[in-house]
Design a protein around this nucleic acid. Structure first.
Lengths: 145, 145
DNA sequence: CTTGTAACTGATAACTGCTAGCATTAGGAA
DNA sequence: TTCCTAATGCTAGCAGTTATCAGTTACAAG
């Protein structure tokens, strides 16, 4: 199904370069559609399919990563090194966590003999400052409930 | 967008009961389609939409939980209490982790002032024993590469 | 520089997983 | 039993993503 594939793409096309740039220079975690919008400012004729294909290839090559939290659409991250994210339950925004929590995986690893563990992912969910403020206000208005 | 809704469903229909049973009595983490297949053995005329609707309601009511790791389709879990999962990169199977890793969220929380944190989710990825064996075999055959 | 060729692209059709709309059914309080 | 309306089955439709394929292009070799 998937071998230890570390080959990645072989040719550096114009499109691929622009997509890589776009990913690298955004601190947000754009969806494929957002990446499409960004690269179209440089290459107006690029196809959405090309964006999808390259996001997959770059992810497989370890040059980007795919975030699957919070349902579709998928979001992409130019930082390949795994790090922790926080997602807002209200607006769906995903932010990086600067300070990674300390995780002791040893007890889990012991329970997982037989498995080959390749990585882990810690996601925090909650409400971003903006949405938190809105909710606080709404709750105050409904306080009779 | 979403208020502190804790109401949940109000009527216990035949369909809902069967879906809850199905979720409770499976240790796997079935997709909506798999739940559909299970409940159809008891209620052949049930609609797929009903399955989806009830999975959402049960999740909102805190009687089940939704797993969003590994891309579509979503998987559901009859255990509502949050716990850690391991997902196989090859076959997509999701297993429970019996021993939860210890996570120190305090450094992260400090970086997240302004946010309202409601939860977190730790997922481990890798290869299940079955797929690991297959990969090991394949690697041996290709070892000239 | 030319050539060969396989990786790549753009356009678009098709697919998957899911949800909305609506007429009909049935849980359960009175 | 009656009534109200939550819930259902059916199905059309949607968003996001992937497959297909003819044409294009990066780039190694000559």
């Amino acid at each position: 199904m998937d071998k230890p594939n570390t080959t990645g793409p072989t040719r550096m096309t114009r499109q691929r370069k622009v997509i890589m740039e776009a990913l690298k220079h955004t601190t947000s975690h754009p969806t494929a559609d957002e990446v499409y919008a960004i690269v179209r400012t440089k290459l107006p004729n690029i196809s959405l399919a090309t964006v999808y294909r390259n996001l997959v290839l770059l992810t497989e090559a370890g040059l980007a990563s795919k975030l699957e939290m919070g349902g579709p659409p998928k979001r992409f991250d130019g930082r390949a090194a795994t790090h922790c994210h926080i997602r807002c339950l209200s607006c769906g925004k995903v932010d990086d966590l600067t300070a990674d929590p300390a995780i002791d995986l040893r007890p889990a690893m012991r329970a997982l003999s037989g498995y080959e563990v390749t990585g882990h992912r810690l996601d925090i969910v909650g409400y971003c400052p903006r949405c938190k403020a809105q909710r606080d206000k709404a709750y105050k208005n409904n306080s009779g409930r």
